[in-house]
Design a protein around this nucleic acid. Sequence first.
DNA 1: TTGTATGCGTTATCAA
DNA 2: TTGATAACGCATACAA
Lengths: 322, 322
Amino acid sequence: MANIQDIARLAGVSTATVSRVLNSKKNVNDTTRKRVLEIMKQLDYVPNANAISLKKGETHLIGIITIAFSPIIVNFVRAFTMIAEKNGFTISLFITNGQPERELIALEMLKRKQLDALVCLIRSNEWNVIESYTHYGPIVTWQRLHSEKLPSVFMDQFQAYWNGLEHLYNKGYRKILSIYPMSVGLNTKERFRAHTKFFKQYGLAETNFPHFEDKISVHEGEEIAEWWMQQQDRPDAIFCANDEVASGITTVLRRSGVSVPGDLGVMGFDNSILAHLLDLTTIHYPIDQQAENAFIILQNQLIKSNCNLHSLEYQLIERSST
Amino acid sequence: MANIQDIARLAGVSTATVSRVLNSKKNVNDTTRKRVLEIMKQLDYVPNANAISLKKGETHLIGIITIAFSPIIVNFVRAFTMIAEKNGFTISLFITNGQPERELIALEMLKRKQLDALVCLIRSNEWNVIESYTHYGPIVTWQRLHSEKLPSVFMDQFQAYWNGLEHLYNKGYRKILSIYPMSVGLNTKERFRAHTKFFKQYGLAETNFPHFEDKISVHEGEEIAEWWMQQQDRPDAIFCANDEVASGITTVLRRSGVSVPGDLGVMGFDNSILAHLLDLTTIHYPIDQQAENAFIILQNQLIKSNCNLHSLEYQLIERSST
DNA sequence: TTGTATGCGTTATCAA
DNA sequence: TTGATAACGCATACAA
């Protein structure tokens, strides 16, 4: 495989000149440039990316860390990949499955300069661990966090959740059950806070239902539907952790002849393709723009630019499940 | 940022020794090793991955090319990422959106040695273009292809499609409409061949329905449902390109009071989460094992090993849509 | 067990 | 407009 020296030798110039041609600098004679390019073509010359990375200290590679692949995550990854590619970056994917050591692989790659930056969608290590790696390169998160070092494209879910509850209330539901996502997440905390405050403010009776947490899959939704059918004292509405759970609940119940929204109101979160398919009321948020913001933040740090971020807003999508 | 020379100087040894410690070679004195490690810790030494890649000519990075993110692709990516990580590789994702130039980014990275290998799930360039890059590193494909240079984990869909048609036939359906995926793909060719041969062999009357091709999304399924409802002379069963299309059709029809499978039999393909949710009859194939095979093939070429592949089999999953 | 020296393929500084 | 040469950070063949 030919390198820059081979080219230089055959073209009768120095490696410096070849390098100039390679990087399309203007200070090189036109005929020289042509000769060099000619030789390059003859030898099927290919620049070695690793040598360039070593020299320049950048790889144009950004890592994305996630715990798993839900539809909403897929959307984020898609949007982020698009804008990253448009700006000359490629992305590398790390699915941690919740194992801290897998996340450390990504963090270490940042440290070792194999990655220019990192997006942490759903973390597996403690925040302070992740934060300590910002020393080696910019990291942006999707989860909520107040940190100088770790910027976030998080959207506070309190108000959105409150609006969802209000919607259910206005539809006449009074025995509302909330299903929460990951217990470690701050989203869960905010939703719980909204739920509690809402119940107090609207004078709703406290329910005796179990506390559902860490429920995020279709399958878990299906189990909750089974649970619901076995109860005497049932919720009349369920505000789900996400659309997957809502989908699981809705399909099992409808299949059993239970009317959604008649017997039970079901509300999702995320506005994924599942909510569209099953016609579920849900909460939409601009994931594409969050992804773009994530990239812009990293880009700003990487090249010390200062582009503006998109502003973000929730939106309640009313469909037939409530 | 400290490098190997700083360590060497402070530890009073040569860079060679430091390198030996770094790579845990045994031929180094225990006390020397300890001293070196101590210094490393003091300076928070981090090996530079790019230097290593340059020196060794490998990055332990494998690219995955896809045109988009369907559930089945997500499954492949997930499975592949898992086994790759287990073997010390990380993966980099390229979503081409069907644009050949985006695919070329990945191929060029292979050429430039930033990628050790490539998995091409759904191509955007002509096969001969992709094939020409096998010169620079191993590439494995998911789509069907007979090539010495481009191994494939493809499963011939003729028999599977035939079985699906037989299932519909046995259920009493006679006016079967086939919806095909990408027109450029060989899967479409094989399915079409199965469909044609099946109709002839079972003496089924040729239908006058339009030819549906390139239909792969939920939304396109929804449109087909609208089309179906407007027809006088209708198919009594639809064999869909994938579960997304089947989902779109089924939900729109059921919402309009059409009975699936009573008025129309619907059959999916892929056995994705959507088929599970909507209880669709579909064709299952072992995507996880295909992913593992893809990795094993690459690994075999990369380190000249010779691991055996999983054997692969289709399976018809009967559910309530037929 | 350790050290010396060289190469991996570029970029960039400086001088010419 | 060009060239010589020193980095970039590490691995390794060879000598000691």
